[in-house]
Design a protein around this nucleic acid. Sequence first.
DNA 1: AAACAGGCTGTTTTT
DNA 2: CAGCCTGTTT
Length: 809
Amino acid sequence: MTDSVQPIIVGRGAEPSAAGDPLLDGLNAPQAEAVTYRGPALLIVAGAGSGKTRVLTHRIASLLRSREAWPSQILAITFTNKAAAEMRERVGHIVGDVAKGMWISTFHSACVRILRREAQQFGFTSSFTIYDSGDSRALLKRLVKEHEADAYGLTPAAVQSRISKLKNELEDADSFVRSANMNDPVERKFADVFRDYQRSLQKANAFDFDDLIGQTVYLFRAFPHVADVYRRRFRHILVDEYQDTNHAQYSLIRELTKPVVGGAAEPYAAGGMMIFEADQAPELEGASLTVVGDSDQSIYAFRGADIRNISEFEHDYPGAKVVLLEQNYRSTQNILGAANAVIRNNFDRKDKKLWTDSGDGEKIVGFTGYSQHDEAQFVADEIETLRRSGMPYSEMAVFYRTNSQSRALEEIFIRSALPYKIMGGTKFYDRAEIKDALAYLVAVVNPADDQSVRRILNKPKRGIGDVSETTIATYAAEHNISFRDALANSESLGFGPKIQNAIAQLDAVLTEAANIMVPPSGEVPPPTAVADGLQVLLQKSGYLDALRMSKDPQDEARVENLDELVAVTREFARNNPEGTLSDFLTEVALVSDADDLDDESGVVSLMTMHTAKGLEFDAVFVTGVEEDLIPHRISAGEPGGPQEERRLFYVGVTRARKRLFLTLAMTRAQFGEVSVAMPSRFLQEIPAELIDWRQSPGDVNSRGGTQSRALNARRPSGGFGVQPLAPGRSGGFGPKTTSLEKFPNRIPSKVRDNGDLELAPGDRIRHDDFGEGRVDLVTGEGAKRIAHVRFDAVGAKKLLIKIAPIEKL
DNA sequence: AAACAGGCTGTTTTT
DNA sequence: CAGCCTGTTT
């Protein structure tokens, strides 16, 4: 991912892969073989940092350049949309515009594309909606209640996860009933809910995430002539991160790589290009398959990834060629040594020896903070040091196991005026107001989706409560029409004038927006239709007005978020002039955390280790390296859990090119409680000589050790031995100076506001944590004014003046 | 129908 | 410490 890509002229002369071939330039022998090998099946076992993206892109370019394949005959599957975009760009660099005809996408996007085209084959329309996990859970919540399944101990979350697991195995309610113990009333109940759930999805013209894959497989199996269309089309299939495929995805690939056995089919026109074998034989051999993966980086077993897909590849595809990429081009030997030492403890793996010739590099830095804030302060300080030594913020990343860990980091980063970006967490599209707005859009494009219509029924408040909603639902059921259509008959619903009027207005707004975005006349709406329609919906429904009138300060931010959403639709229109409302909603449903990554240079990235997969940075901070966090407590009881956690840690460590920092905290506050944390077992697995401990767990335990950085100037000296079992004595002792309660250096959750505090170079200030210091410089404007302060005790810091806990002296 | 108060609970990773 | 659900009040 770091190698520079040079444009290469394609199709000039027909020289085969001769020496000096620019596509093979700078590749080592196994890499070159992975690019040039031709055969039905190829497995590239690619260790971390071994240049697999480069190999994949060059392999595709090589197929195109030699005219072995038209762009339209190539299907490349990646793990995230971001990876897909990157691959498309890099192939484009090499071969030019022809890259546009290729399908380079995620499993989910590829399946949506197929399903939109073929939906009407099996009872859906092409404007089907995609239910994300939140939508599914909402539906299941309703169904669990209706079936009174909670009385059997079935929660919506449990049902959802079980259904997902079954769907990953391509099971449906019927096959479940056949194999499960139907004497167990709980199992029967579950089966009922499952069946009803599936029926509801079908009725709503919707697929959940798992269905996107599973139903495509079903489609191919039930309608072989449809499958043949895609088998004829895709002659070269490449799958990245193959170790993280689940059974459904595996089956999809199997279906696509089957030979075409059917009789003389009509030649399939792809992008105006005919497939040339069509006239040769009635039979067409299966597409060639290339998969890339590394079983040491399999971290998605929890969502059905089956490591056997890759470990048994040679068995599934007899005669498959296997190429091993073991040379690492990314990390220093010290980093690699630590990674190898850790992963070696997974007993059931094939030994792989990653090596590099790039030298030892700097030692890994370890740090143990007293608290998570202390730890965060260390990270912030080190980031500043790296920055001053010339490393751009965009080349640094901070990883953690769970999303909730990001908060402490974020608080310190804000205080330190460090530019950062959090990937994932509460996603933009998960916010309530955004989901409401999207529900309005779905209600327009897919009126069969009752759930979306119900969601917006009383948003903003229209005085339509539970009772009225049920009345409408009953009416719809009696007349066998959708909830949306029931709204159109507001006068026959038997409501009073107030409610009837509210319903009529909602109906009118939806109809007006529909005329803009999906004109019934069938004419093609202008590119701005989605943005225009969304604005009509938000304004005329009164949604925006309600937020503006509200006195809840958060509602101001919600208005801004909605403005942002409108901006997103505009952006979408610019990038996809032909894009329909349906296309927009698809894109929104399938964007992931890793996708909106950087491009904003000069920003530190914060993300979970899962999100970090496939990325790399000059400097990486792996934080919270503690027992019960990594490995996570919950994984301890799961079969294979600790091993998967080790792989996850391995993934985190191997993202680093030059500098690796491993940090932990002695105490961690979670759910309001402070608990003592133990160093992770993975730390023990790293040879001691590779780590330079700035502050080791031992230092922190011994009394009188270094003081907590975030508390530096405040705490009176004295021991603060950690007392996990603080005695609950109610004696008349003085203030509990050593107790943990006093310890967690909480950041006040109220946002501090220093207003227009004026600071100029030379001013003396006092900071709650850092003590006194002198202002060197003030930069930035307005709310973003930053003071560069030299503290007497702790040296130079940058502070966001508006919110830093400081006062002028 | 809506707003509010209080109690409970769960508490990982994500296309 | 949330966020969610339930029950109560207006």
